[in-house]
Structures are given as C-alpha cells and as structure tokens.
C-alpha cells in the first residue's frame, strides 16, 4: 500500500550490504584493520568535489556564526538605515534607488545599499544567512529525531501501531503544505499572542520551526520504517530476540547502528531543503519579518526591485544557490563514502 519512496536515499539492497559489513566486522587487510567509519572517511578525503563542497558549507556556517564579529570589523550593522539617513541624492534618490551604479556598491558598502530602506546589504546578508541556517539546522535535527523515533517504533512494533502510524504519515504527506503554511501561521501566532502584542522575532522563528517540523518528519519516518521492517526479519535481530534481549537493547544496539547511513544521508539532504523551504515561505510573506535579517526575506525584497536594481537580488540569490549546490554535492559525497556501491 505504501507508494514507493522516490527519495534519493540508498536503495534497500545497498543498505543491506552495509549492514552485512558491520555485522561481519571488516575483513582484515594486511596488517592494519579499519572500521567502516575510517574507510568512509578515507574515501571521502579522496573525493575532491566532496571536499571542496564541504569547505564551502563550513565557510557558510562559519560566517553565520561569526556574523556579529565580521560586522564589527566592517563597521556597519544590518539595522541602521544609512541610505535614508543621508540627505537625498547622496546614497539614494527620491524614489529610493541607489545613486551609484550596480546597487550602490563602493568601498563603504561592499555589496551596495538596499533600495528604499537604505540598509547595508553586506551585513544584512550575513545576518540573514545566520537566521536561515539556524532555523534550518534546528528543524533538521528535530525532523530527524522525530522521524527516526516514529519510523523505528512503527517498523519495530508492527501490527496496529504500524498501521496507525502509516495512515498518519499518509495524511501528513497528502496535505498541500505550502497552502497550509500561509493559511495557518496566523493560527499559531494567535494561540500565543493577543492581537495588540508585538510578536517577537524568536517566536516567529519557533513557529516556523514547529510548522516545518510538523510536515517534515513524515517522509523520513516512512523511509526508516521500511528499513526497519526489512531489518527486523534478519537473523541477527532474531538471534538477539532469542537470547532474550530487551526491546530497548534491540533497537539501540542492533537496529540503530545499521540505520546511521540512511539517517545521515537523509539529514544532509534535508538541511538545504529546509533552507529553501524557509526562503520560499519568506517569499510568500510568512515567517521571519523585517527588521530581522533573513535570507528569504532578502530575496523577497529583491523581487520587488528586480527590474530597477537587479544587483540587490543577485547577492542573496546567488549565495543561496551556491550554498544549496555545495550541500547537495556534499550529500552525494557522503553517500558515496558511506555506500561505495550505491548507484545513482
């Protein structure tokens, strides 16, 4: 009844190979023996694309974490409206567009000045990346944890629990999620804030994380459920059962070690997906709001001025493509390293 999962995750039989490998402990090679983890790391180091993309991804995380420091050295912040504070005609014109060509790029404003609002694009982007990555990372962790717990529980217990969980997954996956997000974000705010209270930025972030998680866990849970169903029938699990191992022991000691590969692969694929999903929602005006800097909000702003000041849209847009591309390549390399035989 479950439709085939179209995810790019490792096909079942491939996982089985890893499974086998870890059970039968790696074959001794000459004098030294390596764990599968060491082997994977060696393979990964040899993969030049993977290594480069890992560096890029790390770079993004580093600038996100150190954004306040960089801004301090650079001498500007993402909140001051430099363009509007300066007299008309020095930075922005009467209609709010940068006076200098290419979005007002110069020695003072490395990435230019934001049209109409007059803020500094460079620091705004840094802080925006910081916000977006924070939301995406937390969501990814939550989604993975929930997906793993639900998937393993359903797959391991089977029977009625499995049936029930599978139906819930079916329903969650059938929801038109974008429509749901834009329609029901106000509900979540409304539950916690009265109409005359200002909703703090962190609450918007939490709300986004909650909603993205609510719709994100299902696909990973479905995938893991399938894996556990297959593993459950295997001899080593049977053996553990016969020896009287507790369910907790079976789950944590027998099943989980064999599931790390798909979990890792799924979460590396999920993170960039959440970055773009969050940006998509910001584009639709849901979620993070000005003056909190955000990657998606910047693209949405850029869309307003694209005919007259394309430069402003280029910076957040291109940096996002680079980040997502690097992360996707990294995901591929991680898979290659963990499942050398996987065919993609």
């Amino acid at each position: 009844m479950t439709p085939p999962t179209p995810s790019a995750a490792a096909p079942l039989e491939v996982t089985d190979e890893t499974v086998e490998k870890s059970i039968t402990s790696p074959a001794p090679k000459a004098t030294e023996s390596r764990s599968p983890g060491q082997l994977a790391w060696r393979r990964f180091k040899r993969d030049r694309t993977g290594f480069t993309s890992a560096c890029i991804v790390i770079f993004f995380f580093v600038i996100a974490i150190t954004a306040p420091l960089i801004a301090k050295l650079y001498g500007k912040n993402p909140y001051t409206q430099y363009g509007q504070d300066a007299p008309i005609g020095t930075l922005l014109n009467d209609a709010g567009f940068p006076i200098k060509p290419n979005g007002g790029i110069d020695g003072d404003f490395w990435f230019g000045v934001e049209p109409s609002m007059g803020r500094d694009v460079f620091t705004f982007l840094l802080y925006g990346i910081r916000t977006s990555l924070m939301i995406a990372t937390v969501t990814t962790i939550l989604v993975t944890v929930i997906g793993v717990v639900v998937g393993i529980t359903a797959g391991y217990l089977g029977g009625r629990t499995d049936y029930f969980v599978s139906r819930v997954i079916d329903i969650v996956l059938s929801f038109p999620s974008t429509l749901f997000f834009i329609a029901f974000t106000p509900v979540v705010y409304g539950l916690f804030y009265a109409a005359d209270e200002e909703i703090p930025a962190w609450a918007r972030g939490v709300c986004l994380i909650v909603l993205l998680t609510a719709f994100g866990w299902a696909s990973i849970a479905r995938l893991l459920r399938g894996q556990v169903l297959a593993l459950r029938e295997r001899e080593f699990v049977e053996a553990a059962k016969v020896t009287g191992a507790s369910p907790a022991r079976i789950i944590f000691k027998e099943l989980l070690p064999n599931l790390w590969t798909p979990i890792l692969i799924q979460s590396t694929l999920a993170l960039p997906a959440f970055v773009t999903a969050e940006a998509g929602l910001a584009f639709l005006g849901v979620g993070i709001q000005d003056p909190t800097p955000d990657w998606g909000v910047m693209i949405q702003r850029g869309a307003q001025f694209y005919t007259d000041d394309i430069t402003f849209m280029i910076f957040p847009g291109v940096s996002m493509i680079i980040f997502v591309l690097a992360f996707n390549l990294l995901g591929d390399s991680v898979r290659d390293a963990l499942d050398p035989k996987s065919k993609r």
């Binding site: 960039p272 773009t276 940006a279 998509g280 584009f283 693209i299 949405q300 850029g302 869309a303 694209y306 005919t307 394309i310 849209m313 847009g317 996002m320 493509i321 997502v324 591309l325 996707n328 390549l329």
Partner: peptide, 22 residues
Amino acid sequence: SLIGSSMQIYFVGYIAMFLLVS
C-alpha cells in the same frame, strides 16, 4: 542538472524575467 536542482523558482524566475523580458 545538479546546478538546476539547486535553484529556486522565486530567484531564477525573476532573473529570467529580468534578462529575457526586461
């Protein structure tokens, strides 16, 4: 194809409109 799949419609769409239309 990999580069394509890393793009988002709300960015590429506007870039395409800027270049090809405007």
